[in-house]
Design a binder for these strands. Structure first.
Length: 515
RNA sequence: GGCCCCAUAGUCUAGCGGUCAGGACGUUGCCCUCUCAAGGCAGUAACACGGGUUCAAAUCCCGUUGGGGCUACCA
């Protein structure tokens, strides 16, 4: 049975590179009906943090990558590593090293100064029993085969070729630290072997470590698993992805309003392909995934494409689902920054439903939906911005002398005409009797559309020339969903109030408009 | 420095000896249109370089260049 694992160290948040590795492992195992497990490699007590551990687990959950076994922690398996270390010691495959960090550092800088490879001298390699005092601080080093001139090789499934390294390149590396905690290369081999991992899919930053691990598998009498090294994700400057390239933490994407299906889809296509397929559900990924089509070269993270995918997946959600998702992240984001405006949770209603459906094609993230609902969420009065005056200036009541206006060039809107129009609009809205209509959302929007169209044509007005004034009156913005939807979402009372408020705004700025 | 890995448009990629080098994001133009989007249509743009092998090379081999990784009592 195929069994894979994702083995992050809790020394940082789960970032998108790690998430992609986890995803590859997960869908590879599922493709073969196998198991996927999560193992926390917390052997670096200096840098490991509980908070990061929790972040990793939460991120994995959010992405839907569930471990088939309870999450394991290396810090809870110390006795196991000790046991195997002793075995190697007993068999003469490892030895205690009493060299101090200072003397090691000295040797190293000396070798570098001489232009030689900085490798361990092997000073403690052949200490006799009576030359040792295990009560003294010491590490355990693995006895490699330096000098035998042979190669250690392993096959990499992604490159579809063997990678080999000469033993002269492999140092007697430390497997057990002074404090009795194993190093990465040692613990990872024991865990993967004991946990029955059949395929190791990991970042290619581990490619150079693999020969050491293969040597360890042999010394321990374990069968090595299959290896597959995925190249790294780079930032847009071609450098290894880091915080300065913007968001890298998975949870940050959640909070920024991305859907997990979008992130997963983006990540799977960053380095893997299935012909020309771009949109893939988790099930489809599982069905089609293979190592053969994983790219060997590094990929650059491209947020534009992620946004495109996110927009795509948002369109597939119902308005009600989106409201739930938006409220969910608003709660989180508001804990961090207490912006009163955003604290409000959105109450789902038919008005909200129509509005969100109208907004869907206009946004790329959940956060953006809420931002663009601002005019609706704002229950008080709109503070009309002065930059709206330029739109008011363009207003012409009588459209038949369009050319006259254009040709006269300087002519500004006539405030009396603007107000006349707004008053007419008020009358129109009152006559709609929106509150008394018994229509569902889309039927009501249609009714508003027909009525407004009739109202305009009866006055020889066109939507084209009048819509903007209606829009800015009702929303305070130059950009909004269609005005029919806006009127429906706002409802009669708020629509009338805003028109009235806007009339006041126009009156108060008459001087500016006629300037 | 040494060792290892990688190389198709701005980006992600298809390709696995013979293709008009295909798709997607982006970008540009047009259509649609109450603004902005979305959508539709059209366009733009790539085999890093140099040698081989072969009738034929983006594809195979070798160099060069460029990028990345490892070289820890980090993972």
């Amino acid at each position: 049975m195929v069994k894979t694992r994702f083995a992050p160290s809790p020394t940082g948040y789960l970032h998108i590179g790690g998430a992609r590795t986890a995803l590859f492992n997960y869908i590879y195992a599922k493709h073969f009906g196998g198991k996927f497990i999560l193992r926390i490699e917390d052997t670096d007590s200096e840098r490991s943090l509980k908070a990061y551990e929790e972040d990793i687990i939460k991120s994995m959950q959010w992405l839907g990558l569930v471990s088939d076994e309870p999450v394991s922690y290396q810090s809870q398996r110390l006795n196991i590593y000790k046991e195997y270390c002793q075995k190697l010691l007993d068999e003469g495959k490892a030895y205690n090293c009493y060299c101090t960090a200072e003397s090691l550092e000295e040797d190293k800088s000396k070798l570098i100064a001489e232009g030689k490879k900085p490798m361990y001298s092997g000073k403690c390699r052949n200490l006799l029993g009576d030359e040792q005092n295990v009560n003294l601080p010491h590490v355990v080093r693995f006895k490699t085969h330096r000098g035998d001139g042979r190669l250690t090789k392993f096959k990499d499934l992604i490159r579809d070729q063997s990678v080999s390294v000469n033993h002269s390149e492999i140092d007697d590396f430390v497997i057990m630290r002074t404090d009795g905690i194993p190093t990465y290369n040692f613990a990872v081999v024991i865990d993967d072997a004991l946990m029955g991992i059949t395929h190791i899919i990991r970042g290619d930053d581990h490619l150079s470590n693999t020969p050491k691990q293969v040597l360890l598998y042999e010394a321990l009498g374990f069968e090595p698993p299959a290896f597959a090294h995925v190249s790294m994700i780079l930032g847009n400057d071609g450098k290894r992805l880091s915080k300065r390239h913007g968001a890298t933490a998975v949870m940050q994407y959640k909070n920024d309003g991305f859907l997990p299906e979008a992130l997963i889809n983006y990540l799977v296509r960053l380095g893997w392909s299935h012909g020309n397929d771009e949109i893939l559900s988790l099930d489809e990924m599982i069905q089609y995934f293979d190592l053969k089509h994983i790219s060997k070269s590094a990929g650059v993270f491209n947020k534009e494409k992620l946004l495109w995918l996110n927009a795509h997946y948002m369109k597939q959600k119902t308005a009600e689902e989106l409201v739930g998702l938006i409220n969910d992240i608003s709660a989180i984001n508001n804990n961090e920054s207490n912006n009163a405006e955003n604290v409000k949770t959105i109450q789902y209603s038919e008005n909200v439903s129509v509005l969100i459906d109208a907004l869907k094609p206009r946004v790329k993230t959940l956060v953006e939906i809420k931002e663009k609902m601002g005019f609706y969420l704002n229950e008080g009065s709109i503070i009309y911005d002065m930059n709206l005056l330029s739109e008011i200036d363009k207003f012409k009541l009588n459209e038949s002398d369009d050319n006259e206006y254009k040709n006269s060039g300087q002519k500004k809107a006539n405030v009396d005409e603007v107000i006349y129009f707004l008053n007419q609009l008020t009358g129109f809205v009152k006559n709609l009797h929106l509150d008394r209509l018994n229509l569902n959302g889309s039927a009501c929007v249609n009714f508003i559309k027909e009525s407004l169209d009739n109202f305009f044509s009866a006055n020889k007005w066109s939507l084209k020339h009048k819509a903007m004034l209606v829009r800015i009156a009702l929303t305070g913005e130059k950009i909004s969903p269609g005005i029919y939807e806006v009127i429906f979402a706002l409802g009669e009372a708020r629509t009338l109030k805003r028109i009235n408020d806007f009339i006041e705004f126009v009156k108060n700025n008459e001087v500016m408009i006629n300037k």
